[in-house]
Amino acid sequence: MMLTKGDDFPLHQTPEPVAYAGTDRNFYDRYFFNGYAPDGSGFFGAAFGIYPHLNVADAHFTFIRDGVQYALHASRELNMERFDLTVGPISIEVVEPLQELVVRVNGEGIAAELRFKGRAFPIEEPRFTFRIGPRTFMDYTRMTQNGFYTGWIELDGVRHDLAPGTSGTRDRSWGVRPVGASDAQPHGHGVVPSFFWQWTPINLPSRSLFFHINADRHGAPWNTRAVIAPDGAGHDALYETPSAVMEAPMEPGTRWPAGGTLTIQRPEGPLEVTFEPLVRFQMRGLGYTSPRWNHGLYHGPLEVEREQFVLADIDPMAPTMDNLHVQIVSKVTTSDGETGMGVFEQLILGPYDPYGLKEYFDHG
């Protein structure tokens, strides 16, 4: 399969590029963005999801300022129109498919205009298919792209322009994930759900690096790959390999990463990449694992809400588990002498033997 311009629009109805939706009520079609200044400050993120079988569209915008994470959430009825990329105060414009997009926000004292331009052709990740016992938990395709941002963010009338060189990552994914109201039916006797995820999109001076791993509770990868993408590269000029290993301890008392070292095997020898944590971002600001704003939940014809929380006050192991999912903005150094910025995303649910996690509320 190869990505086409059509894949940058929310037309997908199965995990394959542009096809019928089938009958799975958990089908979704999603945009994601993050960005940060060259020194790691000024982090922001945006997400926009469409759930055709649930008749819901939702969107989120969040950013960090002076140790506080601000978030704007919005949800509406989809009304069958998948090309309407607006949910209340948040909208997305696809200026040039696979290359340039704009996120606009204006509501509840939060406003922004953020223009993303890609550094290289998006990568298409291996298809994610995962089952818990007999039940399909995930079956989706994702494309990912690093790039640069221009624009501004305004909070309660105070506008900050993005720093020159602000970079980040955006992705598009479509297929099946748990969305909307949870399925209360148990998986079956003796089935213990677990999930392990790490993702590290990195911006270096002249290239992008990508790594991800999904592993089972015993640490065996069921989906993993690293990609090196030189600036301007087309889809046929990317170096891809499944031979990459991340070593990352957890911050004590949490399930958050405390830095790490990634080793990517290449024909010319291994590339070692080290992560120095700078800023922690809570993914609940984009709806991920949020009890109230989790993706696809029905809130009526239109609902908009502002949220904010002090990052230093977050309970890393809250019983609701909505603080487990994080992105750590990190300074990145490579063994061949480059420095750059990236994020280290991690989500661990349930047991994970390599870290000694036996129960849902074990921690590092």
Rank of each mutant, 00 (worst) to 15 (best):
M2T: 15
K5W: 15
G6H: 06
D7C: 03
G22A: 03
N26I: 00
Y28N: 15
Y28I: 12
F32T: 10
F48D: 11
P52F: 11
P52K: 08
P52M: 08
A59H: 10
I64N: 00
R65Q: 07
V68F: 04
Y70W: 15
H73W: 15
H73M: 10
A74F: 02
F83V: 03
P89I: 13
S91K: 07
L101M: 03
V103K: 03
I110V: 13
A111N: 04
L114D: 00
P126S: 00
F128R: 12
R131N: 00
T144F: 13
I153F: 05
A163C: 11
A163V: 04
P164Q: 02
R170S: 12
S173E: 10
D183W: 05
A184E: 15
Q185E: 14
Q185S: 15
Q185Y: 14
G188N: 04
V191E: 09
V191S: 08
W197K: 06
R217F: 11
D231Y: 06
A233D: 05
A248T: 09
P249S: 14
R255L: 12
G259E: 11
T289R: 14
T289Y: 14
Y298T: 13
E305C: 13
D315E: 09
A318C: 12
A318I: 13
N323I: 05
I328P: 06
T333D: 05
G340T: 00
Y352C: 01
F361L: 06
D362I: 02
G364C: 13
